[in-house]
């Protein structure tokens, strides 16, 4: 049998040009669609950030104003001062603690959620979201009432003969409030990651002599790592810069970075120092995000 093929027609030459033109048109349309968000980000994010960056090298004058001259890095040098360092490490520690606690609570719940029937899942996901329907500030004040001296928690512990407690205005209260506030940010990415895992892989692991714990360690956890990393970053970053929760539940004894920065701008009127602190905070967060994309990108 012989195979005959048609000779290439003249139109073949023209195709690449049409293709290129179509690609150019496509990318122009894409740019047009993205333009509003580009403008928004430039006006309300990039420009203010640049201003903050410039201010961090400026000098505070005697009247609490800022002189945009005599550029220096004195504000960055102040970060080495013991009091600043203490606040920085305390913030890092509490953010880390919050993240770990959120992870420990959210993982089993996300697994449970991901293994339910779709109808039940959706109802439970709504329950996870419900707290967002109430203002964050109000919810934090609610905790102040619950933890307060005459609050329901005190009444309950007294009734049970456990005596009183002094949770409010302590680091414990801050962590409690942060965990409460950011738990959904941990649950949702974990749920999304676990939900994507083929349940048959866990069955295969059990079939291959893995115990429940071994199957978790060797199959479920590595495969849900993108969710663990995404959730941890989503909790760690806002916890590190948290302002509202520590202000309301932490009292005066536990100053965190967020409050300290606000103090620099509003009370101490040291804008360059506040700006420098903001940038250090951003650098820490950026480092976290880079780690996420490095690690998460590989496993995704």
């Amino acid at each position: 049998m012989t195979i005959t093929s048609e000779p290439p027609s003249e139109n073949v030459e023209a195709t690449p040009q049409f293709e290129k033109a179509a690609q150019r048109k496509e990318s122009r349309r894409g740019l047009l669609l993205a333009l509003p968000s580009y403008l928004y980000l430039i006006i309300f994010f990039v420009i203010p950030l640049a201003i903050v960056f410039i201010y961090s090298f400026a000098t505070r004058n005697r009247f609490g104003g800022t002189d945009l001259s005599g550029w220096n890095v004195a504000s960055y040098e102040r970060i080495a001062e013991p009091i600043v360092r203490t606040i920085l490490f305390r913030s890092l520690w509490l953010a880390l603690l919050t993240t770990v606690i959120c992870l420990l609570i959210a993982y089993p719940f996300a697994y449970f959620l991901a293994t339910r029937r779709p109808a039940i899942r959706n109802v439970m996901l709504v329950f996870v979201m419900i707290p967002f329907w109430t203002n964050f500030l109000v919810r934090n004040f609610a905790w102040r009432v619950i933890l307060g001296n005459d609050g329901p928690l005190t009444k309950a512990t007294e009734f049970l003969g456990l005596g009183t407690h002094e949770l409010l205005f302590s680091q414990k209260a801050v962590v409690l409030g942060l965990v409460y506030g950011y738990l959904p940010f941990m649950i949702l990415p974990l749920y999304a990651a676990i939900e994507r895992i083929d349940g048959q892989l866990l069955e295969a692991s059990r079939d291959l002599y893995g115990t429940g714990w071994q199957s978790f360690r060797n199959v479920l956890l590595p495969l849900s790592m993108p969710g663990v990393i995404a959730g941890s970053i989503l909790v760690f970053i806002p916890s590190l810069g948290a302002y509202v929760t520590p202000e309301i539940l932490g009292g005066a004894k536990t100053t965190l970075l967020g409050s300290y920065i606000v103090t620099q701008f509003l009370t101490a009127r040291n804008w360059p120092f506040g700006a420098a602190l903001s940038f250090v905070l951003m650098a820490v967060m950026l480092a976290g995000t880079v780690i996420y994309f490095r690690k998460g990108g590989r496993t995704l």
């Binding site: 083929d198 048959q200 892989l201 069955e203 295969a204 692991s205 059990r206 079939d207 291959l208 002599y209 893995g210 115990t211 199959v219 590595p222 495969l223 496993t299």
Partner: peptide, 18 residues
């Protein structure tokens, strides 16, 4: 299943992707 001396070749194989 981990206590039985049988093993399974799963439909679509269920190989560990990682």
């Amino acid at each position: 299943p981990n206590k039985r001396s049988v093993n399974t070749v799963f439909q679509n194989y269920a190989l560990f992707p990682h």
